[in-house]
Amino acid sequence: MSTPSDRKYSKEHEWIKIEGDTGIVGITDHAQNALTDIVFVELPEPGRKTEAGKPFAVIESVKSVSDVFAPADGEVTEANKELEEHPELLNQSPYDKGWIAKIKVEKQDESLMSAQEYDDFVAKEAH
């Protein structure tokens, strides 16, 4: 799966796609691949404040529990309720149907990368 160039990426393998003052947030294809079978997502409640680099959601595979880190300071406006019944969407469609939450962005994390930079980062991490 190619990394979409219309968004930015964090070192913790989240993506954020900016639309106006809203950022849609999810995890990358690389992340879902590493987590394998995702069976549960703990979504943030709308109204929850987020802080760049701090956990704001939880993803569980059969074997592991992983935090999802916010790529921006802001406030959650909506969570993807579809994931409550269908957490496998995170595996099947990490960049589209598997989005996790929308954040009203106050300030983006400064260390976010472009798609190309992220691909290089993942390639380097693998070595």
């Binding site: 394998t36 079978d37 069976v39 595979s61 059969v62 074997k63």
Partner: peptide
């Protein structure tokens, strides 16, 4: 080995 493909498979 904890998994080869994934646990559910």
């Amino acid at each position: 080995p904890v998994q080869y493909s994934n646990v559910i498979d």
